[in-house]
Write a protein that binds this DNA or RNA. Sequence first.
RNA 1: AGGCCCGUAGUGUAAUGGUAACACCCUAGUUUUUGGUACUAGUAUUCAAGGUUCGAAUCCUUGCGGGCCUGCCA
Length: 572
Amino acid sequence: MTTAETTSDSTPETPARDFIHQAVADDLASGRFQPPIVTRFPPEPNAYLHIGHAKAVGVSYRIAKEFGGRFHLRFDDTNPAKEEQEYIDAIKEDLAWLGIEWGEHEYYASDYFDQLYEWAVKLIEAGKAYVDDQTGDEIRTGRGTLTTPGTNSPFRDRPVEESLDLFNRMKAGEFPNGSRVLRAKIDMASPNISLRDPVMYRVLHEAHPRTGDAWCIYPLYDFAHGQSDSLENITHSLCSMEFESHRPLYEWFIKELGIFPSRQIEFARGNITYTFTSKRRMAELIEKGHVTGFDDPRMPTLRGLRRRGFLPGSLMRFWAEAGVAKRDNNIEFAKLESILRDDLNKIAPRRMAVLDPLKVVITNYPADQVEPMDGINNPEDPDAGTRPVPFSGELYIEREDFMEDAPKKFFRLAPGKEVRLRSAYWVKCEEVIKDDSGNITELRCTYDPETRGGSNPPDGRKVKGTLHWVSANHAVDAEVRLYEHLFTAEDPTTPPKGSEDWLDNLNPDSLKVITGAKLEPALADTEPGKPVQFERMGYYCKDLVDSTPDKLVFNRTITLKDTWAKVQKKGG
RNA sequence: AGGCCCGUAGUGUAAUGGUAACACCCUAGUUUUUGGUACUAGUAUUCAAGGUUCGAAUCCUUGCGGGCCUGCCA
């Protein structure tokens, strides 16, 4: 290759490059940074990760991967009043589930407390920071407002030695919480409020999950984050838009300290219809008993999604396809569903399960005969093979698959109509049995022995419907939990008209528990959490928490697309 | 409002001064032993007004709309 001039766009499908990719590429091209590109995900260990975090990790992770760089996990543990070891463990677990690999690059802002303290001293000595004795209220008042400049603290110009001494004594534990802070000396009149002498350190007599009681002063985010990035040689520190106004401060500390110039780039968080990510709201749902906990399958937490049966790869793919930009967004949940179904379709083994059983007796089937039919495990994957599914003269079919007075577009079972039982035989409904109050209790059908395996009969008859079924005597009982959106509103956090409570958006049908479901026997052996498709019904998984061999519990991850439901809806 | 950021089909994201595109949603059809899957086709887009330019989604101005910032949270 001598020239690249002739490239006729030989890579037409180069993935669309978001503005972050471009910035990184530009930085490499301009020499602003040398390889390797290093990114990080910096969670505060004060909560469980949710679906929004999956976007944040994904953005940084992909940049590192695609530029052949490095990815760090760093816990932003600068506020021991809120943070706990439990969350550190949970976050690592959830990240691993997502498929994120950080190797030995696991860091903690608290690892840098000594260095941070040293740098704070350096800034005091340089006259760039001072100890402020004002109360919290005084500081707030002095900061001014959005439209009026702040005023200098009376302690702003105190001698360097005095600040040094006070800061030292803050560290030594001589002062109570809230009595003094260390502030950067920048500009109380700046239109950017985060530059109005931001607080760097506060007194906090609180044990830290990692440093114990070694410290009673802790750095604030602004004095810890950029420096931590710098210490780890993070080239691109990617964060959400609300930190944009902090960037000048991020850069100010780096410049004053003369340390590695990490670059902060902000992007918009990802919102999704019908869901939310506020920790406060999650807690409220739990407190009020609307969900069972942070791992409730309806929760937007990664643990909830996992329990529900979502694939980690689908989550990552969803965010990758959703893209990254700076504008506010509200992605349709349907986009996620589409990706989930697509992934599930390829890997989920097919099984048959009848959720609302209606008994069917095959009157011409030899009594006591049982045949193992070959059930195709996955039509998308020939290598998945088949499994034996026991067929007998007494079956269950889905109650909604029978209609006594069926409209023309109803392809399922009706009096005198014939359908295919998947992988088994064609059956024809001959008689409808009802109880005294007119409820249908049983169907009497005949089968055609020439349709074994569900194949077309020699006479060329056609049938439009194929039904799932289970053999009554071989069926395994299970509880099935049918989940829907937790909320009926696209934006659940906005109360509905005439209400002031967002909880009025709750979907009363977000969970429907079915206790008498009949499953084909193979389902008893599926691994908890692993996806299966209940044919014609949807994707399910055995519940990771509540399912036991004695009492099977399955969660519905998501339904199949249901065009029949649409037809019905249209028909009135 | 003081500052900053952002406005592209219904939704999300591309187009880097040169034919506005991709995915999802929606509609119609084909195939089908899942009313699934797959496939085909279709509907629909640059916030507005000026300006610069041979040419503007892109650059400039103004307006309109949305978001963020006044923790000793992150």
